[in-house]
Design a protein around this nucleic acid. Structure first.
Length: 139
DNA sequence: GCCAACGTTGGC
DNA sequence: GCCAACGTTGGC
């Protein structure tokens, strides 16, 4: 069981879009970066991820679950690009902002802090627990 | 909207 | 295989 973080611009694909897809979930497509793709290839069904709003919002707003393992990205003809499917599990009771994360000494090693441009990132167990606690949300 | 940081591309 | 040029991302 591993933990991840998915970033998306809310104007393009936000938490509301994700929850509207319900239990069936939806492809996390459009990723055209090897590191992000490799992270998706490492995911297993049942892994959980934070849903983060980038560019505007700048906060973790929900938790998603991997519901299909890595497969070809239907939005690309290029066989290099895979993606997983994710479904919304629950929203954050209190969204956790980038500002809060940057201010927390325990979270300074997060990829979100050190490599903000990577759109699909690993999250450690410890980071997961801390952020869920900050958001009053079940891990 | 700006621009720094980063990843990718392609000429040599 | 190097590296300059270019495109994209995302915080501010």
């Amino acid at each position: 069981m591993a933990y991840w973080l998915f970033k998306s611009e809310p104007d393009v694909w936000g938490w509301d879009h994700q929850t509207a897809k319900g239990a069936a979930g939806e492809e996390w497509n459009g990723v055209r970066n090897y590191q992000a793709r490799n992270n998706m290839r490492a995911m297993q069904i049942g892994d959980l991820g934070f849903f983060y709003h980038s560019r505007s919002g700048l906060e973790i707003v929900g938790i998603v679950e991997i519901c299909a393992e890595s497969h070809p990205d239907s939005t690309s003809d290029d066989p290099r690009w895979d993606c997983v499917d994710v479904r919304a599990v629950r929203p954050f009771v209190k969204p956790v902002s980038l500002e809060q994360i940057k201010a927390d000494q325990r979270l300074q090693d997060m990829v979100l802090v050190n490599n903000s441009r990577l759109s699909v990132q690993p999250v450690t167990d410890a980071q997961w627990q801390i952020i869920c606690a900050l958001g009053d949300t079940d891990p």
